[in-house]
Amino acid sequence: MPAYWFGDVDDGSCTPFSGDAREIAGRIRVIRTSMDAFVPLKWEQAVSCGICRDRAEYIAKLREACFVAAERDIREQYAGKDTELLHMVRTLDEMDTVINLLSERAMEWYQIRQPTFSRKYRRTPSHLMVRKIREKSRGALGSVAGQIEALSAARVDLAREVSSRANRVLPNSSALIGGLVAARLMAQAGGLAPLSRLPASAIQVLGAKTALFAHIRTHTPSPKHGIIFQHRRVHNAPRNIRGRVSRVLAGKLAIAARLDQYRGVAVPEFIEQAQAKIDAAGKDGSTEIRDGGEL
């Protein structure tokens, strides 16, 4: 018995669905249609069903319900806790790019104004250079340097917010690699749900797209790590065991992402065991890194 948005049609007879646009939107969601031997609806059926008098009214009613349904679905999608975090991470990465570009440019400009100035043999961090430029330069250069500083301050605030939100949204992943890196992984995957569906091998090289495709195309060595390299346990590990550490870490992250997605709370016993496994993998010469398989 085919069920359409306006009612159930059975051998020419029709049981109309009486309800407003909101109720029709609810009905659309629960109707189960089989696509085998499917017959598309005819709008005249809705007329004989008593839902509408003519085509114009049919379309108007259908549209109203579709708008309600779409607005509801959009709202639900945005309500996911990870949606805003995604944008926060992307904003953070873009701010980094902008701050670096502007700082480099300001430095070049400053050197023109100070022909005797060189950065060679100085270990002045970039942000201190920017401050110096602001203090010593008049006009546009000084105010650009001031803007870079303001932007850097906003970036620090944002990074703190990303981190604390990631601790809430991705409690297990954040416990393993820190909120910021966990949030970056999530953003790269396109959300928590897509991240939780990735295999560990994909998580391991997430963010190493160029190297991965170079590997697939031209058989260069495969990348050992992507974003997870940013975590200290990977980049502090001796070069010869980095691959092992990132593989074990990615394996545990794949589990952590699924816990984040489907439980949504920190699971202390998992985190404890996972940390131990990852630490063991980081011990040089250790051979016993077999996975027990629990959790």
Partner: peptide
């Protein structure tokens, strides 16, 4: 679609036609 009365906007996945089968002629 708000401005064009002959567009019926449907939020659904094209890989799953059963989602919008009850709506489309």
């Amino acid at each position: 679609a708000h401005r064009r009365p002959n567009i019926v906007p449907i939020m659904a996945d094209a890989t799953r036609p059963e989602q919008y089968a009850p709506l489309v002629e």
